[in-house]
């Protein structure tokens, strides 16, 4: 790294990034454009006369669905962590019998298309009366995150020094105390990564929302946008304003937790 870092590479990097992020810019641009100007055949490249009409309309219509999505995201985090963390502990530290087969099942589970799960859940929920409920959607959304969470936890816990576990045992801690007092605190970063993805996936889910919660009283934001497009194809500024608002959690998490995002993407795919 003693070589000089050339500026021209930074310049190319900025151009490439700008090109890549153009659709995101365009979403913001359209969200600030007056509805009348959207119908021009040469759209303007900058919000020369920015208006917040789109946002006013979006917030008036979509505020409840933002709340619903927030609730579903948080419920999904809780369910995922409660199930995945102990399972990771059993796999990585307690040497669960048949652990290899379980790992294999979890890998296979991640390959099942969401549309298949959606049909299965629909068939079950019809009978149980769980269609169009927030709880039903939390459970369905968690199926995206739980296998990922278990694999992430067990990979991390595998690396916890055995001496730490033994020391706790020597002090007379049972398996449960070792788990809550030693393993969980040490695995804090894994919990953050798992929570982050559980939230983002639940927040972004469209397939489960559009199948299991089609006529619910409380619809999540993704379905809100979809219905908005259907009912309201003239007001693309309001649709894009809703899209901008729906993107905020991702943007915030990327800024404050970029490390955990990158850790989650590479987990399972790249081994050190």
């Amino acid at each position: 790294m003693t070589r000089r870092r050339p500026w021209w590479k930074t310049a190319i990097g900025i151009v490439l990034t700008a090109f890549m992020l153009f659709p995101v810019y365009w979403m913001v641009n359209v969200s600030l454009t007056d509805a009348g100007d959207l119908r021009r055949s040469d759209p303007s490249w900058f919000p020369s006369a920015p208006t917040f009409d789109g946002y006013t309309a979006a917030l008036a219509d979509q505020l409840p669905s933002l709340g619903t999505s927030l609730l579903i995201g948080l419920g999904c985090i809780a369910l995922t962590v409660v199930i995945a963390a102990p399972a990771g502990y059993a796999l990585a530290i307690l040497n669960l019998r048949g652990g290899r087969s379980l790992n294999f099942l979890l890998l296979v589970a991640q390959m099942v298309p969401a549309v298949v799960m959606a049909m299965g859940f629909y068939a079950i929920y019809v009978r149980l009366g769980l269609l169009n409920t927030v709880w039903g959607l939390i459970v369905a959304d968690s199926t995206i995150a739980v296998p990922f969470g278990v694999l992430l936890y067990s990979t991390f816990m595998m690396g916890i020094p055995r001496e730490l576990i033994h020391a706790a045992r020597m002090d007379g801690a049972g398996a449960w105390r070792t788990f809550t007092q030693v393993v969980l605190p040490v695995s804090r970063n894994s919990t953050l990564t798992v929570s982050l993805f559980a939230f983002l996936w639940a927040w972004s889910d469209f397939i489960f929302a559009s199948t299991l919660n089609r006529s619910g009283e409380f619809i999540p934001i993704t379905l809100g946008i979809y219905q908005y497009i259907g009912n309201n194809t003239t007001q693309w500024n309001a649709i894009m304003a809703t899209a901008v608002v729906a993107s905020l959690p991702a943007a915030i998490l990327l800024v404050v937790a970029q490390r955990y995002v990158a850790a989650g993407v590479t987990a399972g795919a790249v081994k050190d």
Binding site: K9, T10, Y226, I229, L253
Partner: peptide, 25 residues
């Protein structure tokens, strides 16, 4: 190079956005 970390992080944005947001855009 200079700013490579920041720019690389920005490249993650499309992946993190809800699919419905990207597809409608």
């Amino acid at each position: 190079f200079r700013l490579s970390g920041v720019l690389r992080a920005l490249f993650l944005v499309p992946w993190l956005l809800p699919l419905i947001v990207s597809s409608s855009t």
